[in-house]
């Protein structure tokens, strides 16, 4: 399976990855606060990820690593 990993402590909850994801499988975790006090981004349905890295391309804080299953 493709894998998207978030370095959650660095996330500022800006939502640019949420908007960029063509599969609409990223959300800001409403019930979680990270160290910085932001609602961090997370994946809702990892199975649907196509490893396009559009989320990571738009992330200003280099929170996201994308791995493709080959």
């Amino acid at each position: 399976m493709n894998k998207v990993t978030f370095n959650t402590d660095l996330c500022k909850g800006c939502g640019l990855c949420v908007e960029a994801c063509p599969k609409k499988i990223i959300t800001l975790a409403a019930d979680v606060l990270n160290k910085k006090g932001y609602h961090p981004a997370c994946i809702t349905d990892a199975e649907k990820c196509i490893a396009c890295a559009m989320c990571a391309t738009m992330c200003p804080d280099v929170v996201i690593t994308v791995e493709k299953n080959v």
Partner: peptide, 26 residues
Amino acid sequence: MVVFKKPQSLSPVPTHYCPGCTHGIV
């Protein structure tokens, strides 16, 4: 296979930029 990760020349530290500021992307 890793298709996206932090470039080596970028320091592994949090930035002071505001959330969503595109300075980070550049």
